[in-house]
């Protein structure tokens, strides 16, 4: 029961100040499910253009007061009324908008990790809703009444490991661009960033024929299994001429039972002595990708994780994820 005791302490430690801070800034991923934007979550402030307009209105008001211009008051207040109505319109454009997490994509370090959300407009039309993550380009959409559409947020992923979406903001300055309404939403969405494949990695290590009998061995030698990048020295009759003719690039045909010799075993201990961890992870990534292209079953043996020989998207993802989170939590 010790864990419960700790949990109780944590509950008490969340002071009212922390709770207010979470309500205002949404710094922790506290939004578990679909969020419908309400007045408690929507903030509105004037844009720079709106501030300039308000300053002009103040000047006009002073002038009307000084010169006792009744129609000056009327004009100032009419514009002021329009500004106030625009504030409500800006709010209405945001209120009732629903946003839900869909999932996170995958990326190699140095690329962009894509997170998917869905926006639902509810009963009214939404115009110029801008969704922005911490970094990366904001994404702006219009929604018809009753529409639901996915929206992707790309976040730069410089390092391997887990990458959270973090706090996102939804904003809009519809209709006049003088008010900007925004809301913070923080979903606990996390994607995996694989190590970047090593550029110019050495060729795949020679295969091992172990006890495992792969699916490939049952196939005839002459059966086409896939294409791999053309390498200097490949036989001319192996070149995928059709692909060359299409202008798709140079590839060599891979036939089952040829090349690496059936099964690839990736052993951390077989890496050259003195190689640093990140380079090693990058090289394994590059090899896994090559093996995938060559339709070659592989197994992975790194400290703390052993993946048995396998093939396919799931296997590949498991292997790459193991590399991404290396060293695994249990070994740390």
């Amino acid at each position: 029961m010790t864990t419960l005791g700790i949990a109780g302490l944590q509950t008490q430690a969340r002071s009212w100040r922390q709770r207010v801070r979470q309500l205002v800034w949404r710094l922790a991923p506290g939004d578990l499910d679909r969020i419908v934007l309400r007045h408690s979550r929507i903030y509105i402030l004037p844009t720079p253009r709106g501030a300039a307009l308000l300053a002009t209105l103040a000047t006009m008001l002073l002038t009307a007061m000084n010169y006792a211009l009744s129609l000056g008051f009327a004009l100032t207040f009419l514009v002021g009324g329009m500004v106030a109505a625009a504030l409500l319109a800006t709010f209405r454009n945001m209120a009732g908008l629903a946003v839900a997490p869909l999932g996170a994509g995958e990326a190699f370090a140095g690329g962009d990790l894509e997170f998917n959300l869905s926006l639902a407009s509810g009963s009214r039309q939404r115009i110029g809703i801008t969704v922005a993550g911490r970094q990366g380009l904001p994404n702006s959409v219009d929604l018809a009444p009753g529409a639901t559409r996915p929206i992707a947020i790309s976040i730069p992923a410089p390092k391997r490991g887990h990458l959270g979406l973090g706090r996102i903001s939804l904003s809009s300055d519809f209709p006049l661009g003088i008010w900007r309404a925004w809301a913070y939403v923080h979903f606990p969405l996390t994607g995996t960033v694989f190590p970047a494949p090593e550029a110019g990695a050495p060729p795949l290590p020679p295969g091992h024929h172990g006890s495992y009998v792969g699916r490939s061995s049952r196939l005839a030698d002459t059966e086409l299994a896939g294409l791999r990048d053309y390498e200097r020295g490949d036989a001319q009759n192996r070149i995928a001429w059709k692909a060359v003719a299409r202008g798709a690039g140079w590839y060599s045909k891979q036939f089952e039972g040829t090349g690496g010799g059936g099964v690839l075993e990736l052993h951390w201990v077989e890496l050259p002595v003195g190689i640093d961890t990140e380079t090693g992870l990058s090289r394994f990534t590059a090899w896994i990708l090559s093996a995938e292209r060559a339709a070659l079953p592989f197994s992975l043996h790194i400290p703390g994780t052993v993946l048995r020989t396998g093939q396919g998207a799931g296997h590949r993802r498991a292997a790459l994820t193991a590399l991404a989170v290396f060293p695994p939590a249990s070994a740390r």
Binding site: F77, L78, A86
Partner: peptide, 12 residues
């Protein structure tokens, strides 16, 4: 928008 703002304007 202008018509919506008219009550505010008149009151002011």
């Amino acid at each position: 928008l202008i018509l919506q703002g008219v009550p505010i304007a008149a009151l002011l």
